[in-house]
Write a protein that binds this DNA or RNA. Sequence first.
DNA 1: ACCATGTCAATAAACTTAGTCGAGAAGGAG
DNA 2: CTCCTTCTCGACTAAGTTTATTGACATGGT
Lengths: 151, 151
Amino acid sequence: MIVSKKSKYAMRAVFSLAKRFGESPVKIADIAEEQSIPPRFLEVILSQLKQGGFVDSRRGSEGGYYMVTPPDQLSVGKILRFFDALKEPVECMGDNPKEKCDLKANCVFMPLWENLSAAISGVFDSTTFQDLILKEKEKKECGAKSLFYVI
Amino acid sequence: MIVSKKSKYAMRAVFSLAKRFGESPVKIADIAEEQSIPPRFLEVILSQLKQGGFVDSRRGSEGGYYMVTPPDQLSVGKILRFFDALKEPVECMGDNPKEKCDLKANCVFMPLWENLSAAISGVFDSTTFQDLILKEKEKKECGAKSLFYVI
DNA sequence: ACCATGTCAATAAACTTAGTCGAGAAGGAG
DNA sequence: CTCCTTCTCGACTAAGTTTATTGACATGGT
């Protein structure tokens, strides 16, 4: 898959924390349970998110993790890129390609990879976590309305 | 990467055969050399392409592989999808998801995965191997022109 | 002092990717 | 009919990546 399990966990964790932006810290164990993420794996993930400057933490009782970046200023793309999930579509692209290719500019496939790369970025960079939070609220409301009308 | 080495080998092999559509069979060894693909790996790939009905083969001397599908009727997407390289962006999507998710329709991330899936398909389904062949010809002409003007 | 929590580095199991190998089957030329 | 050439098939291996798990440690609050 393009988006690994780990990256999805990261997104869910960030989503969870983003909803509580400005509130008191949330324990790893709580996020893990809420989002069904293996707690000790989440530990690793949150630690990386902290390294990335997206979240911060406090130890001791009443400790936990909390959002640093406001949800409306954090795109999904930033998280995915940080977790290296938004890699180049092929190894021969980028400034420092793993797989070297002599063709480069003359490769007939290159425009394809470039379009792909742009299309993917387009999708992820245009959605912030604030958007997702709003979407969830909408869904809940629609769900309620739906229940009302269905009967 | 989204597109594995194997899938890229497959694309190059198909590209190579597509250029000779209607001509006599090409030996694995020749394609391998022309496209810098490990011969015995290419063997596996071509055999799968045959299974998929994209190419056919003949044994014995003067044998080899040849294109069945005309280049203008074969999109890049068809090959990538066949090689499972164009998987769903996440495991929880599709009709028969590997990773089951209770949220499904209510998942806030789902629209993201759907947009992504559509964007990727859009890129790959809109290019045929005929397009690539034409592009290569253009590039060669431009290259010649360029040489002419540069001096 | 103690307990609750985050922190860190190492490790392991499962899976995927990339590639290899040897023996065999089928077509064509002589 | 026999030999050579080429494809065919299935198993195998090596390396890398992903998905965690573990135990010992550090730190903050009461």
